[in-house]
Structures are given as C-alpha cells and as structure tokens.
Computed example of a mutant assay.
Amino acid sequence: MKLSEEIFLFYLKTSQSLEMINRKLGIRDQLFYYIRQIFPMSGLYVIGSSLNGFGTNNADMDLCLMLTSVELDQRTDAIPILRAVKDVLENLNCVTDQCLIETAKVPILRIMFKSEDGGNMQLDMNVNNSVGVRNTHLLYYYSNFDWRFRPLVAIVKEWARRRAINDASRSSFTSYSLVLMLIHYLQYGVEPPILPSLQQCYKSHFDDSIDVRNLRMTDPLENEPNETFWETKNSSSLCDLLLGFLEYYSYRFNYESSAISIRMGRTMSRVEVMACQELPLQWSCIWIEEPFTRMNTAHSVYNTMIFELIKQTFMGSFETLNTSLNLNAFLTEPPLHLLARPTSIGLNDAITQEITESDQPNE
C-alpha cells in the first residue's frame, strides 16, 4: 500500500544514521576523559532517543553521569557535582558554552559542544537519574522487537510535533509519553498483539534491582525456564497500524477510568494505580505509568481544555487519514490554535520532564 511505503520512507529519511550515533558516542568518550579525572569511579551514559532506537540526525544528546548505585538528593547533591563538571570542562576548546539549570527538579548541565568538523550539538547532562538509563535500555529492546515499531514512532512523533501536542511546556505530551502510548496500543489495542510486555516476558533481564551500570544492550533476550517464546501473528501494515493507533485513542481508550501500563501489557484501573502509589494519586487528564518508577509520565497534561483539544486532534487526524490515505495531508493539518498558547508550566519544568521521562529522556 502506498501509505505504508510513504511511512517507511519517511522513517528511513529521518532516522539517526550510524555515523551520527558514532559521533555522539565519540563526544561522550571525549567528555568522559576529562570527567573521570575528578570522578574516577563514575560512568557516563547516553540516554534517550540518541540510543534507544528512535533518534534522528537533528536530535541533541542527553547524558547521565552515574557516580553510585545509591539514590542522590537532586537538590543537595547533584548541583555541586555538576558545578565540578562545569569547571573541568570550562577551558576545553570543544565546549563553547555551558549553563547549569539548578531550578529544575532534576538539575542539568547544558553543554554546547563544537566538534572538529565545525558541527554544533547541545548536550544535557544529569547526575544519577538512573531511571533514564533503565528506560533507554528497555525502549531499545522494544525498538528491535518488531520492524514496524520504529517507523510508527517516527511518524507519530512528527505528527505530534506538527500538531503541537508534543510539548510538555504547553500542557501536552513528552516524546517519551507518546512512545509509551504507541507501545501500549501494540500490546493491547490490536488483536492479536504485536508487542508483549518485555518486563513480564523477560523478568530477569529488566529487573529494576539490577545496577544500571551492569545493563548491556548487546545481551540477547532469553526466556526464563517455563516461559513461552513470544511470536506475533499480526501481519497488519504500517497504514493499518497508524490508523488503528489514532482510532484507539480517539474512540476506544477510556481516559477517565483506565491507565496505560506497558509494564503490565494492559490497561490498569484507578484502584490498581492507587495501590502502586506511596503518595496521594494525582490522576491528571491521562495516566501513563512510567515502567520503573510507576509515576505518571503524562503529569504535564493537566489542562482540561487543552486535553479536549488533544483528543479532537486525534479524532480529526484519524478522519483525515482514514478518508484520504494521504500522508502529506495528515502531516500538514494546522494545529488547533489553543495548543500554541503557553500555560503556567515553566521552561525548567519542561526540561525536567524531558530529562526524567525521556524519549529523551529526551528529545
């Protein structure tokens, strides 16, 4: 089908090249050479879309500096560490500017890096935000589980960006939340399912008690004894799956009573979600469970008026695509005007959400 071909060609055109991945890893190694002089027992990890399989050549890079397996207080411990890193990088010719953002919930050091070929890249570094390493590891395996998943993520993220529903600072979704929504649809919204819950099928591989410094993306997924090998019998095209994704969140998903959980591979009720929470539940407009912390990755979606516009965007885009089967028409519809208005959420909060929730933790 033409639309399926167009989706796949869009993915091929925009996906991160091997050259860009190697460039980012080289920058990481270059910075780590200096950082380990003051923190010799540390590790510096690329997180988010740069490494989880959903990156583009235009994306910046997110980094996590791990010093210990013990959780650090981000307000009292992370900032002095980032200041020390800032000082050690201050005089490097390849670092043209640095900004320490201290007011965010997860402080970050924003670094402007200039490589020898003259290319510039923005780097955001946090300290000991281990969930970013874990969900990068998890999403990488999802991205390789079925060949259709990466092209679908690419087109959904581009659509959401153009329709102005991919901006946490404007009470809409982070890229990470959109990816989790798509995983959930492929787990639960199609029949037969295309993706399993990797955390249920491969419990030892994604055990959240594992030190993140021991996570390896080169390790194959192996079934535990008495576990069944997962194999989907769903042969739906990219066209059908994109339409199904839009239809599912337009008409079938119950936002008021159901939560998304890729950890469980299904929806969860409010009662189940509350049972997982140590703090009082803040349901917001939609609940998307972070698969390791079990908090709501969509807490930025709090404005009910804007959320109604988001749902209208899903419905309108579904009707447009279902009628025309035209990718260009689907991508060039203008955003609903209220989504372009800033809300009370601040820039630093938006940055924090990108760091802690990552597609990155990104993007």
Rank of each mutant, 00 (worst) to 15 (best):
L347H: 08
M1E: 14
T297W: 02
N348A: 11
Q187T: 00
R170Q: 08
R266I: 02
R266K: 15
L100R: 03
E354G: 10
T267D: 08
R263A: 15
G346V: 01
L152F: 06
Y11G: 02
L215K: 00
E222W: 01
A78C: 14
E102A: 13
C94S: 14
H299L: 15
Q30T: 11
R28V: 05
F318Y: 14
L242N: 10
T103N: 11
R216F: 07
I47K: 01
I306E: 08
Y185P: 10
I306G: 08
Y11V: 02
N328S: 15
N126P: 04
L215R: 00
L31W: 08
F245L: 10
E256N: 07
C239E: 15
I345G: 03
L139N: 06
E290L: 05
C285Y: 06
F229L: 12
P151I: 09
P220N: 05
Q277F: 04
G189M: 07
Q187E: 10
E272F: 07
S4G: 11
M274K: 13
T228N: 07
G55W: 10
N234K: 03
P225H: 09
N326D: 15
K86P: 00
S257K: 15
I345L: 13
A59T: 13
N328V: 15
L195P: 01
D77N: 07
E227H: 13
P342I: 05
R252E: 12
E222Q: 10
S169C: 05
L100F: 03
H205P: 04
R263T: 01
Q277N: 06
L3H: 00
N223W: 04
E191L: 09
N120W: 08
H299S: 15
S42G: 11
P196Q: 01
S261Q: 07
L327G: 02
Y255A: 04
I108Q: 03
R75T: 13
V131T: 12
P361F: 09
R161Y: 14
M61F: 03
D62T: 06
I155K: 12
G132M: 07
R150T: 12
K13G: 00
M125F: 01
